[in-house]
Computed example of a mutant assay.
Amino acid sequence: MIRSLMTNPKISHRPTICYRSIQPSDLEMLEQIHSDVFPIRYESEFFQNVVNGRDIVSWAAVDRSRPDGQSDELIGFVTARIVLAKDSEIADFFRYDSSKEDQTLVYILTLGVVAAYRNVGIATALINEVIKYASRIPACRAVYLHVISYNNPAIDLYKKMSFKCVRRLNGFYLIDAQHYDSYLFVYYVNGSRSPCSPLELVTVVVSCMKTGLKSVAAKLMKNEEKTVKWPKCKETRGLISTQNKRMIKTECSGCEYV
């Protein structure tokens, strides 16, 4: 996949971006970008698994028109892993069928772009590669990821790309002895969706209202059928019956924080 982009003020030429798999020759640059981009340090085993494709799929972005001769050097990347849906933390956020144990998800591990090439659509293109990959797996139900709570540019990007924020995880990250919250984002594929869509929520509310009205009407009719005899020449007082109200709490929204 090749895409030409408008010139970035940080770049002295018009880049032509190509996307390919990460290769063993990318190891040094992959480690360098991770070190520059992320506050979390990854073990060497992780990088070896990425460049050798051991249980990890990956895409690299390179600039084929670089004037310095480094036309195949990484300028961006995304890494991901296929996981079983039944073993994931998001089984409650899509229509998981327990009878189909082969259902899978794609979890995005890391995503990064070097500073000079940011804000030109490379991150979006890399995520789209993951989404297309997941969509081609019939048993895959969703793509999901975590993002640290203060990374507003990333949060805005995922929302713009129709990822759904379904949970806030307190103290998910531990960086330099300090805990940071994380947001969990999900992108549904292959017809999967949240188990509580807006239409279903309306249907549930209407159904509850109808059930409540029918219950009240039945009780009123039952009370009318009863005949109560009162003593003569006595002051009568109306009997007031109270019914406990039940509150139905729904937790389904486009962005739910818990």
Rank of each mutant, 00 (worst) to 15 (best):
V205E: 15
K100Y: 10
I240G: 01
H146E: 08
S197R: 06
K86Y: 06
R81D: 02
I155S: 07
E101G: 04
G53L: 12
R95L: 15
A61E: 14
M161Q: 11
R141Q: 13
H34C: 13
T110E: 08
P195Q: 04
L184E: 09
T7S: 04
K245H: 09
Y180L: 03
N8P: 01
R64E: 12
R141L: 07
I75D: 02
L109I: 14
V143L: 05
P9G: 06
Y107F: 09
T227Q: 06
V114Y: 02
I11G: 06
M247N: 09
E224R: 12
I137G: 02
S192W: 04
K219G: 07
A91V: 13
P198C: 05
V228N: 10
L145V: 05
Q178H: 07
V228D: 12
L213G: 04
I131W: 01
E73D: 08
D26P: 03
E101Q: 10
S99L: 13
L74W: 01
Q48A: 12
Y133C: 00
K160T: 11
T104S: 15
A154C: 03
Y183N: 04
A85L: 10
V166G: 01
C252P: 03
E251F: 13
Y183Q: 01
D176M: 04
W230I: 14
A142C: 09
V83Y: 08
W59T: 08
L201N: 07
L184V: 12
H146I: 09
L74Y: 01
F172L: 10
A217G: 08
K226M: 05
I155F: 09
D87G: 02
R41C: 05
V216M: 15
K219M: 13
E73A: 07
C18R: 14
I122L: 02
C196K: 11
Q23S: 05
Q70S: 05
V57E: 15
I155Q: 13
I240K: 13
N52Y: 13
S4T: 09
R81P: 00
V106Y: 06
L145F: 03
